[in-house]
């Protein structure tokens, strides 16, 4: 059932992204052969400058549009698709609420990650650095040095990736949970959603401040602070972030499914 839900969630956004993603890449390629190809040959006529500025502008606009649209889609697919009139269809399908939410969440994550990959790839496409230029830098020296100081560097990178993934899930589920809470506000569901979102963010901010203050005080108080292996310290911090984000994501997710199951109130 989850697979079938995913199929329709992806189909609902495919039209826009089949346009946006290629557009970003194509414009990046165009820029590679216009602006960046001319970088060494200093050209100073007005027309060239205008085209340059224009191309950069379009590229930035496409990237910004891509992320704004992704954010809007994540919100809109949930707000309209589950809590709006489309909800009459989705919530009467023979599936469980957690499957509905999971499908939306996976779809949102894929959109975000692919958009980020497209943005990265477009930068790579845009700047005409030949492979040789990169190889000329002696990476092996750098790498050896790094391994010496920070043997678990790769592990930390993996942890940071995991941390940002979990953080993304937490951010998306916070949006979902806020909208689900907003659904309880009767006639003012849009305002309710926004207030919920801001409220949750403020509570989290206060919590983070308190926790980090407590942690730093206890660290100052303890004699371990200066003896602590910096690598271990980074790992610890990252894992703390991962676990706290995961806990938040779980609260938001189950809160959302609970509301969908027991408190759903479509207009």
């Amino acid at each position: 059932m989850l697979g079938k839900l995913l199929k329709y969630d992806f189909r609902s956004v495919s039209r826009e992204y089949m346009l946006l993603w290629p557009a970003a890449l194509v414009i990046a390629l165009v820029m590679r052969f216009t602006i960046f190809a001319r970088l060494d040959t200093v050209e100073d006529n007005l027309l060239a400058n205008i085209t340059n500025v224009l191309t950069v502008f379009i590229y930035v606009a496409v990237l910004v549009a891509m992320f704004i649209i992704t954010l809007l889609f994540i919100i809109q697919r949930f707000y309209k698709g589950i809590l709006g009139s489309e909800g009459y269809l989705m919530n009467t399908l023979p599936v469980r609420p957690w499957q509905l939410v999971t499908s939306k969440l996976i779809c949102a994550m894929v959109l975000l990650l692919v958009s980020m990959a497209v943005a990265g790839l477009s930068v790579f496409l845009m700047i005409p650095i030949s492979l040789q230029d990169i190889i000329q830098v002696d990476f092996s020296m750098l790498w050896d040095r790094l391994m010496e100081v920070f043997p678990s560097f790769l592990l930390l990178v993996a942890e940071l990736v995991l941390c940002s993934l979990v953080g993304m899930v937490a951010s998306i589920t916070q949006l979902y949970f806020s909208m689900a809470l907003g659904n309880l506000f009767g006639k003012n569901r849009l305002i309710g959603s926004i207030v919920s979102y801001v409220g949750i963010s403020m509570v989290l901010n206060v919590l983070y401040t308190v926790v980090s203050m407590v942690l730093s005080f206890s660290a100052i108080g303890s004699q371990y602070r200066w003896d602590l292996d910096p690598a271990l310290f980074f790992h610890a911090i990252t894992w703390f972030a991962i676990l706290s984000s995961a806990a938040l994501a779980a609260i938001f997710f189950f809160g959302t499914t609970y509301i969908l199951k027991n408190r759903l109130n479509l207009e």
Binding site: K80, S85, T92
Partner: peptide
Amino acid sequence: KSIVSYLPDRMYFA
């Protein structure tokens, strides 16, 4: 839900 066919009093199309 698998045995109920429901016609709401509104449009539910995307």
